[in-house]
Deep mutational scan, measured.
Amino acid sequence: KKIKIKIKVYNPETKEVLELEIEVSEEEAEELAKKLAEELEKKGYKIEEVEI
């Protein structure tokens, strides 16, 4: 079964909002969402919402 992940991120420095969407297997979904959120935060983005 495929799971659709939508991530909306906001960069306070540039006032930019990015929306990302990807489909992955159920097993990958939670781990991938967690890794993406961590990487984006390292780059200065503030995570507003992660929906699985």
Rank of each mutant, 00 (worst) to 15 (best):
K1C: 14
K1I: 04
K1S: 07
K1W: 15
K2F: 14
K2R: 12
K2L: 15
K2V: 08
K2C: 13
K2A: 08
K2P: 08
K2E: 06
K2T: 12
I3Y: 15
I3T: 11
I3K: 11
I3N: 10
I3M: 15
I3W: 15
I3H: 10
I3G: 07
K4E: 02
K4P: 01
K4H: 10
K4Q: 06
K4A: 05
I5F: 13
I5L: 14
I5E: 00
I5D: 00
I5S: 00
I5M: 07
I5G: 00
K6L: 05
K6N: 05
K6R: 15
K6I: 04
K6W: 12
K6G: 02
K6Y: 15
I7Q: 00
I7L: 09
I7C: 03
I7A: 03
I7E: 00
I7S: 00
I7F: 15
K8L: 02
K8V: 05
K8I: 08
K8G: 02
K8P: 00
K8R: 15
V9P: 00
V9I: 04
V9G: 14
V9W: 08
V9D: 00
V9R: 00
V9T: 05
V9N: 00
V9Q: 00
Y10H: 04
Y10M: 07
Y10D: 01
Y10R: 04
N11L: 03
N11R: 09
N11F: 04
N11V: 08
N11M: 06
N11Y: 03
P12W: 15
P12L: 15
P12N: 13
P12C: 15
P12R: 15
P12A: 15
P12G: 15
P12D: 06
P12Y: 15
P12F: 15
E13H: 13
E13I: 13
E13N: 11
E13D: 11
E13S: 14
E13M: 14
E13P: 06
E13A: 11
T14N: 11
T14Q: 05
T14E: 03
T14G: 06
T14C: 07
T14L: 04
T14D: 06
K15I: 09
K15E: 05
K15Y: 11
K15N: 11
E16C: 14
E16K: 12
E16G: 07
E16W: 15
E16N: 06
E16S: 09
E16I: 14
E16Y: 15
V17Q: 09
V17R: 12
L18Q: 03
L18H: 07
L18C: 12
L18F: 14
L18T: 05
L18V: 03
L18M: 07
E19F: 14
E19N: 13
E19M: 15
E19I: 12
E19Q: 10
E19C: 13
L20T: 03
L20V: 08
L20Q: 02
L20H: 07
L20A: 03
E21D: 07
E21T: 10
E21K: 14
E21W: 13
E21Y: 08
I22F: 15
I22V: 12
I22C: 13
I22P: 01
E23F: 14
E23R: 06
E23Q: 08
E23T: 07
E23D: 11
E23A: 06
E23N: 12
V24C: 14
V24R: 03
V24M: 02
V24E: 09
V24N: 03
V24D: 06
S25V: 13
S25I: 11
S25F: 08
S25H: 11
S25R: 11
S25L: 13
S25M: 09
S25D: 12
E26C: 11
E26D: 05
E26H: 12
E26T: 04
E26Q: 10
E26W: 09
E27P: 13
E27K: 04
E27Q: 10
E27Y: 11
E27G: 13
E27L: 05
E28S: 08
E28D: 13
E28F: 08
E28R: 11
E28T: 05
E28L: 08
E28K: 14
A29H: 04
A29D: 02
A29T: 04
A29C: 09
A29M: 03
A29S: 09
E30I: 07
E30W: 14
E30Q: 09
E30F: 14
E30D: 04
E31G: 15
E31Y: 15
L32H: 06
L32Y: 07
L32P: 01
L32G: 07
L32A: 12
L32W: 10
L32M: 05
L32T: 11
L32Q: 11
A33P: 03
A33D: 01
A33Q: 04
A33R: 04
A33V: 12
K34C: 09
K34T: 04
K34Q: 09
K34R: 12
K34D: 04
K34W: 15
K34L: 07
K35C: 11
K35A: 04
K35S: 05
K35P: 00
K35H: 09
L36I: 07
L36H: 02
L36M: 12
L36Q: 01
L36F: 12
L36G: 00
L36T: 03
L36Y: 10
L36N: 01
L36D: 00
A37M: 11
A37Q: 11
A37E: 03
A37H: 04
A37I: 15
A37K: 10
A37Y: 05
E38R: 13
E38K: 08
E38P: 00
E38V: 12
E38G: 05
E38A: 12
E38C: 12
E38I: 10
E38Y: 15
E39V: 07
E39M: 11
E39F: 12
E39I: 10
E39W: 10
E39L: 07
E39C: 12
E39K: 03
L40H: 01
L40T: 00
L40V: 02
L40S: 00
L40A: 03
L40I: 02
E41R: 15
E41Y: 08
E41M: 11
E41V: 08
E41N: 04
K42N: 06
K42M: 06
K42I: 04
K43E: 04
K43I: 06
K43C: 13
K43Q: 12
K43D: 03
K43Y: 12
K43R: 12
G44V: 00
G44I: 00
G44Q: 01
G44A: 01
G44D: 00
G44L: 02
G44M: 02
G44P: 00
Y45V: 01
Y45P: 01
Y45W: 08
Y45L: 03
K46F: 05
K46Q: 07
K46P: 02
I47V: 07
I47E: 00
I47N: 00
I47W: 01
I47K: 00
I47F: 02
I47S: 00
E48G: 03
E48L: 07
E48Q: 08
E48I: 13
E48H: 08
E48V: 10
E49V: 10
E49N: 13
E49T: 14
E49F: 13
E49Q: 11
E49D: 06
E49Y: 14
E49L: 14
E49W: 13
E49R: 13
V50H: 01
V50N: 01
V50M: 07
E51G: 05
E51D: 09
E51Q: 09
E51C: 14
E51Y: 15
E51K: 08
I52S: 02
I52Y: 10
I52C: 09
I52E: 01
I52N: 01
I52D: 01
I52K: 01
I52P: 01
I52Q: 02
I52A: 02
